[in-house]
């Protein structure tokens, strides 16, 4: 029961991030929404690993959280005109 509540809350965060990523007028809005979406997605993967009772699934979340910031760093350096 408590997992469904967690899933609804995380789904709300994903929906708002997707709205900003698809509607955002500038590229900066999309970059920030994508970075937030990466963080929320890591939480979603950990929650799914808890629901499925599989410890292997936590490794995916770890690798994703460790590597997802590279794209955000590249986009941020591009917006600062100095990649």
């Amino acid at each position: 029961m408590i997992e469904i509540i967690y899933l609804v809350i995380i789904t709300g965060g994903v929906i708002f991030c997707l709205m900003r990523a698809l509607m955002g007028p500038t590229a900066g809005d999309r970059a920030v929404s994508l970075d937030t979406l990466s963080t929320v997605t890591a939480a979603l993967l950990v929650l799914a690993g808890y629901v499925f009772k599989r410890g292997v699934y936590l490794d995916v979340s770890l690798v994703y959280a460790a590597l997802a910031f590279l794209g955000s760093v590249a986009i941020a350096r591009f917006l600062e005109k100095g990649i």
């Binding site: 995916v60 590279l70 590249a74 350096r77 990649i83």
Partner: peptide
């Protein structure tokens, strides 16, 4: 794991470069 590391991180960085 492979898709998240390669697709979401490296491809975006290469495209931005």
């Amino acid at each position: 794991m492979a898709e998240a590391s390669i697709g979401a991180a490296l491809v975006t960085a290469i495209l931005v470069i």
